[in-house]
Structures are given as structure tokens and as C-alpha cells.
């Protein structure tokens, strides 16, 4: 819908994500900048893997916001371009290990698309460290926590992303 895309930021309640880039609300000037990373996770392996990390209380940074999809093969490269256009500092896609896809082949198709996308994003000026793809199974809570930790550290060190479409 056009409205949702055009809703001005002012009409929203105080934003939390990326507060340092906006004018910081009073009293919060001291908060350091935190990157926002959009995570597309397949329902069967990686979303469950992130659940496992939770069940095992594996502490990791807060910066990843997960969008659940049934399969990594459901992730349209346009979603990723969209996220970078709208100012995501990073995008993390995670699915079942190749060969273990719940739908048997979804992640193989995903892998082809995302391989192309990775090269393309760099070509368009997005640092490849801002776009990561991992295979995390339902039992790999530990791996999920580590992936999040390492990506957040890297992206934080990179600073705010130039928005794709602005490429500033």
C-alpha cells in the first residue's frame, strides 16, 4: 500500500531502531549507535535454531530483527534490495543446510539467487559484510548465536550503511 511506504516518521511512536541516526530524543544522547539488521529465517531450520538459542539462553546482540519465512527459497532478492533501500545496516538470510531443506530443494534455488545477489550488492556499492547467508539447523542454537554476534560486531564496526538507492 502506498500509505505505509509514505507514512512520515514523525507520526510514529519514538523509534528504537537506529535512534542515533535520527535526532536522538532528549535524554538519550549518550546511547551509542546500534545497527539494524534484517534477518530472513526459514521456519523449519533457522527460525527453530534461533528458538533453540533462546531455550538454551545463549546471549547474543539484539540488533537482528527476524522476519519469518517458510523457506530460504521464499526470500525474493527484491526483499533484500528493499531492506537496503530503506536503510537496513545489514541483511542476514539463514536457512536449512543444503540437502536438508524441509521442502527438499528450496535452499538450493535460494543459494543460486543469493550468490548472484551477493555479487550484485557489492557491485552496487554495499559492503559484502553487510549481507550474509548462513545455514543454521534447528539444533544449531550455538551457531545462530555466533553468527549474530560476529555479524553485529562487523556491521557495527562498519557504521551506518549507505542506503541503496541513495548510495551516499
Amino acid at each position: 500500500m502506498a500509505e505505509s511506504a509514505a507514512t512520515p516518521a514523525e507520526s510514529r511512536p519514538p523509534g528504537t531502531a537506529g535512534t542515533a541516526v535520527e535526532k536522538p530524543p532528549a535524554g538519550e544522547e549518550t546511547r551509542e549507535w546500534e545497527p539494524v539488521i534484517v534477518g530472513f529465517l526459514c521456519n523449519w531450520c533457522s527460525y527453530a535454531g534461533a528458538d533453540s538459542a533462546g531455550t538454551a539462553r545463549m546471549v547474543h546482540p539484539t540488533n537482528v530483527r527476524i522476519v519469518r519465512v517458510p523457506c530460504s527459497g521464499r526470500v525474493n532478492p527484491r526483499f533484500v534490495l528493499r531492506a537496503f533501500q530503506r536503510g537496513a545496516d545489514g541483511v542476514l538470510i539463514s536457512g536449512c543446510h543444503p540437502g536438508d531443506c524441509h521442502y527438499s530443494t528450496g535452499n538450493f534455488y535460494a543459494r543460486r539467487r543469493l550468490l548472484l545477489l551477493k555479487g550484485y550488492l557489492e557491485y552496487l556499492g554495499i559492503d559484502p559484510r553487510r549481507f550474509r547467508t548462513h545455514w543454521v539447523s534447528a539444533s544449531e542454537g550455538q551457531k545462530w548465536a555466533e553468527v549474530v554476534r560476529s555479524m553485529c560486531e562487523e556491521v557495527k564496526a562498519l557504521g551506518p550503511a549507505p542506503s541503496l538507492g541513495n548510495l551516499v
Binding site: 505505509s4 511506504a5 509514505a6 507514512t7 516518521a9 510514529r12 523509534g15 531502531a17 537506529g18 541516526v21 535520527e22 539494524v36 534484517v38 530483527r65 522476519v67 526483499f79 528493499r82 531492506a83 533501500q85 530503506r86 536503510g87 537496513a88 542506503s163 538507492g165 541513495n166
Partner: peptide
């Protein structure tokens, strides 16, 4: 995705 990133910065229309 849009909701999450809305208001981050004037990246979009």
C-alpha cells in the same frame, strides 16, 4: 521490513 525500517532515515519516498 518497511515497518521495521520506517523512520530510520529519509531513504525512501
Amino acid at each position: 521490513v518497511d515497518e521495521l525500517l520506517a523512520g530510520l532515515r529519509p531513504a525512501c519516498s
